[in-house]
Amino acid sequence: MNIEDLKAEIIAYSKEIGIDKIGFTTADPFVELKERLRRQQELGYQSGFEKGTIEERTEPRLLFPDAQSIISIAVAYPAKMENAPKSTRGDRRGVFCRASWGIDYHDALKERLSKLSDFIKSKETEFTGKLMVDTGELVDKAVAERAGIGFGGKNTLLITPEFGSYVYLGELITNIPFTPDEPLEDSCGDCTICIDVCPTGAIVQGGQLDSKRCIAFLTQVKDFVPEEFRDKIGNRLYGCDTCQAVCPRNRHVDFHLHADLEPEPEIVKPQLKPILKMSNRQFKETYGHMAGSWRGKKPIQRNAIIALGVYKDNTAIDELIEILVNDPRPVMRGTAAWSLGKIGTDAALIAISEAKEREADDQVLYEIDLALNKLEGGAASNAR
């Protein structure tokens, strides 16, 4: 079949299987990206979640020797949720970012890419390909930029003309030399809103992110969250949408095109206190289908503890004391001490003081002392 005719058929078929945008680019190395990644590495801005070497992330033929072109896809996801439950005193709730609404987007896009691959194979028997979504070596955003899906925003996200930045990305490396599409021009202009309002200053400059300061990263680490970031995390259980929510390109953007990506309100904005007592099985049954579950329950529970402290929810004191006293995980005990210190009642002070007498872990003791210093300092200040 003529390659241009095949390309047209692929584009038409992609609409039938729930792909909202599709673009084509070469399998040539991503030369500029390689230099940017090296600079990120030198500055210590990488998250550590990246897969592969810089060469593997920028040279498609190292991953797929027969590579001739790359097909990039985008699938739009919702920006707003109907009937979102309210967070109220005594019934505080956390929130999962929009990219964790619905089923795990890795599964959703891999299913679409697999169908696309099978379709091409049915038309071109010599076709071979390799698909990847997010966790693969290639940088999805860079592929999508070069394929004309959208442009790279200053918030480091891909921004499409139609769907803003609320899109999932994936790609299919192929052995067919499709005609590449033209990239779009950057359109952020002089706007710096995302840089100005980033809660932790993680967007160093337009298009450059210090991943280790990014709340989306911080909510996923399994260790203690540095104290300077805890209040800024707020009630986020997984991810952060601030740099998307403030983007003018996302104003009035809200697409509900795919049932499998629709949020379940009680799941994506859950009550905080029940999360603290969840078993591994309960966590998997409740959240296992979501992208936000990939690191397991530990980070989600720790973030729930932080959120209760930020809310100063004194109805959670008994649960937090139970964690401080009996949880076998130092990160949980230490974070509970911090949270109780934020709540700051007499019961919290007594519980933290008693816990200090029993605690043997140095990091937990550090958190206990931090909480006690704040509580005692506050008491001294109130006495003056």
Rank of each mutant, 00 (worst) to 15 (best):
E228V: 09
E228D: 12
E228T: 04
R230T: 09
D231M: 10
D231S: 09
K232Q: 08
G234Y: 12
G234P: 05
N235Y: 08
R236G: 05
R236F: 01
R236N: 10
Y238S: 15
Y238R: 09
Y238D: 14
G239E: 04
G239L: 02
C240W: 02
D241N: 02
T242R: 12
T242I: 10
T242N: 11
T242M: 12
C243M: 06
C243K: 07
C243D: 03
C243N: 07
Q244M: 08
Q244P: 08
A245K: 12
A245F: 13
A245C: 06
C247P: 07
P248A: 11
N250M: 01
R251C: 00
H252S: 10
V253K: 13
V253H: 09
V253L: 02
D254H: 02
D254Q: 03
F255L: 01
F255I: 03
H256Q: 05
H256D: 01
L257T: 02
L257G: 05
L257V: 00
H258W: 07
H258S: 04
A259K: 12
A259R: 11
A259L: 02
L261I: 00
E262D: 01
E262Y: 04
E262L: 01
E262P: 00
E262K: 01
P263V: 02
P263Q: 02
I267A: 06
V268T: 12
V268K: 09
K269N: 15
K269H: 11
K269V: 03
P270E: 00
Q271W: 13
Q271S: 15
L272H: 08
L272F: 07
L272I: 01
K273A: 05
K273S: 08
P274G: 01
P274I: 03
I275G: 05
L276I: 00
K277L: 00
K277C: 00
M278D: 15
M278A: 11
S279H: 10
S279L: 05
R281M: 15
R281H: 13
R281W: 14
R281G: 15
R281V: 12
Q282E: 15
F283K: 11
F283R: 12
F283Q: 14
F283L: 12
F283W: 14
F283D: 15
K284E: 14
K284G: 09
K284V: 14
E285G: 05
E285R: 14
E285Q: 11
E285V: 07
E285D: 11
T286R: 15
Y287T: 10
Y287I: 03
Y287N: 09
G288T: 05
G288W: 00
G288S: 04
H289E: 10
M290D: 01
A291Q: 07
G292F: 07
G292K: 10
S293H: 08
S293T: 04
S293E: 04
W294Q: 06
R295T: 09
R295Q: 12
R295V: 08
G296Q: 03
G296R: 01
G296W: 07
K297Y: 13
K297R: 14
K297Q: 11
